[in-house]
Structures are given as C-alpha cells and as structure tokens.
Design a protein around this nucleic acid. Sequence first.
DNA 1: GGTATGCGTTGACGCAGATCAATGCGTCCC
DNA 2: GGGACGCATTGATCTGCGTCAACGCATACC
Lengths: 218, 218
Amino acid sequence: MVRLVSVCASLSDEELALLESLAHHTHFASGATLFTQGREAHSVYNITEGVVRLYKLLSDGRRQVVGFALPGDFLGLAMRDAFGFSADAIGEVTACSFSRSAYTALVDAKPHLLKRLHEAATHELTLAHEQMMLLGRRSAEEKLVCFLLGMQQRWARLGKPSVTVPLPMTRQDIADFLGLTIETVSRTFTRLAKDKTILIVPGGVRLMNPERMNQLAA
Amino acid sequence: MVRLVSVCASLSDEELALLESLAHHTHFASGATLFTQGREAHSVYNITEGVVRLYKLLSDGRRQVVGFALPGDFLGLAMRDAFGFSADAIGEVTACSFSRSAYTALVDAKPHLLKRLHEAATHELTLAHEQMMLLGRRSAEEKLVCFLLGMQQRWARLGKPSVTVPLPMTRQDIADFLGLTIETVSRTFTRLAKDKTILIVPGGVRLMNPERMNQLAA
DNA sequence: GGTATGCGTTGACGCAGATCAATGCGTCCC
DNA sequence: GGGACGCATTGATCTGCGTCAACGCATACC
C-alpha cells in the first residue's frame, strides 16, 4: 500500500514506458478478491481507480482491517513469497498488475526505484505505528475522528481536497479497522452528528467542526 | 528495529570493515534515552546488548509501546528527518551508532545493502500488521500469550532458545505494548500461572504448556 | 404490491477490562 | 534497623463498549 505516483516520480520516461509495458490492466467487480492472505504472491498491484479493503482473519472469523488502499497505492510489496493479508474491492476497482518476477527484475536493475520503494515502505511503517497507538490507547470517539481526518488528508493528497469525506466502505469495515463493533461505530457517528461535529451524508461524512476534531485527535 | 545480523550477511568483509569504522560504540545506563520522538534523527543505532523500549506518547501522557528492540535490532531507519518514536534503555544497553549522513552515503553506494534493508523494513511491516490484529481484536489473555510466544521466538532466533522467557521490561511496559492496564496484565499472568500454563520466575516466565498457548494464539 | 436481502440505527442489558485503593516485597540509603 | 521508593499483586467497584435484539429503509426481484 504504497503510492505509485511518488514511486514513479523518480523514473525516467524510458523506465516508465518499460513499467507500463509490464502492466496488465485489470478490472474487479464490487466485492471481488484481488488476492488472499497466505496464497503465493505472483503479482503486484497498483490501484488505478476505486478503494480496496486490506484485512487479516483469525481462525474463528475475527477480522482486522489493516488498511484501505486508494488510487495510486501499491499492493503486494510487503511479502517475500506469500501475501500477508487479503484484499478485496470496495465498489468497482481497476488496477494495474505486474508479475512478481518482472517487478523483482526491474527493482534489481534500478537502485533509485528501490530507494523510493524503501522510503514508501518506511512511511507505511510510521503509519502502522500511528495505528497501533490508535488501536491500543484511544477511545471510540477518538478512533473515529482520527479515521475521518486521516481519510480526508488522503483524499486531499490525491487532489480531491474537500470537507466532505467519501466513505465507500461499510460500517463493518470501519469497525474492523478501528477495533470496534458496528454498533459502536454507528452510535459514535450519531453522537458526532448530534454535536454538529460532522454531518452524515449519503456515501460519506461532511466535517463541520474540523477544529474540534483536530483537538480530539491531539 | 531491524536485525543487523541479517542485514550485514550480504556485505563483504571489506564492506563490514567500512561499516565498523563508521560505528561509535555507546553505552546507555538503565532508563537512559537513546532518542526522542520528533527530534531530528542524526544517528542510526544497532543494539549490541540489552533491551530497548520503543514508544509513542499522546499529549495527555497515554503511551503506546510500539516494540522492544533486542540485540541485533536496528533503530532509526524508519524516519526521513525526525524520529517517529522514542527509545530508552531497559536495563544496561550497549549500541553502535552511525551518523545518519554516513549511513545514507553507504546505503547509496551499496544497492544490495539497500535491498536487505528493504526486506527488513517489509518484515517489520508484516509484524506491525500482526500487532494491529492483536491490539484490535484479541482478548487480554490472548494478547499476553501471543506476546510471550513472540518473545520466546525472538530470543530463540538470537541463539537463546529456552522455555524460560526473559522479561526485562516492567508490567507497565507490557501493558502499554498490549493496549492493557498494568492491573490486567498482572491478573492475567496470575491466572495463567494458576492454570499451570506458565510459571512466573524472577525476571521472566517459564512456559509450562506451550501447546495450549499456541492454541490460544491460533 | 409483497417480501426478501443487505446495511444501518437504536435500545436494553451484560461483561471484560479500567479505575480506585490497599497491601506486599524487594532494594537502597541513612 | 527503619523508612522511602519502585514495582507487582490483589480486591472492590465502575464503565465503555460489546452483545443481543428489534426496527428502519433502501434496492431488487417475483
């Protein structure tokens, strides 16, 4: 889950063309699986359009969503041989896929590309640490507020800055990302809406009091 | 928090000597701070001896321990300019430190070293995802059992395989790592000891029923 | 129209783990 | 010795969030 845009910024036109020639454009229907935890990782994906849910399962069915991949994000890097988590499409998704061997060969040949990938992985790790703080030490309200601010920032960086944050994932997805239940997520949304901190709109949420939210996210 | 042993396995003798010549051996007293979250990252550290607590703080003092660094682990890689977390010594610690600029130059010059570092970072990310699952979806008992098994494995990989797991960190450190309170950690230890699943010994824990523990960790 | 299915909301109640508080038990230092 | 301090344990009580259950409200299909 690494942004290709930034990764590719260090490539020459020639190298970009090479990368493009290796890519397979693929479409995934809503709910379709891109790949499954534990399966051998043959491909690497770059999301072109849509949102992807990344998650791990426990044997008894408990689920932890480890992230949501947005357009530009790269999937399938963080594994030696097998995928460390599953990924499926939230709504329609288009992606470029690369064969793992071609990807590995390219990376071996281009050290500055590797450097970008390493920077990206390192950034992911920082985000993961933030998420640990959130999961281990924050209240339900703080979790939800941090989530909304985080999604807003991510959409903004993709060139869609807005106080209205699109939330294509279900309440259950959000709950499994934040370590909560669907009921707690729903109740917390309702409470924030009653506060006039947010306004719940179809397909998302409008941030009405970002100042208070930033204060809660501290 | 990346193991230098594995990183360095890909270096030639000459390169290892170069690395060694860049290193400053440093000693830290019990409780001493190696570096602080948010400060500019001038150095990179490799732990030689002892255990280091890695943690983030919230403005109101809530703490999340993001990891424990053991001998061989590398610290200070996951940041562009500033440290993303704080680190301090649990007991006496010795470490090699490298200036950040020397480290950067070396990495730029040795692509295969970079590749090792990237693999290590990627492994860290996988562990971080596991920790998210633990923090978001597991019960107190499961958290503790997973922690103990994880520490046992790490000591084993360092060449100290034993059913007696050393726990140099305080109960508070463990609590802050697992997203619990000190009281819950203490009570859960006591319950596991009454079960005869573990035996609490000075400075650690002896695993008496690894089978049951593995089952709980699922 | 009817009813089935999926998602979200709301309410009543229960419980795992937090909080508050006391006690034990080392080690250190005077 | 004794008391001060840091860490761990244990008990009593509280509470945030989970669980269970009902209901609302779309869209879909017969």
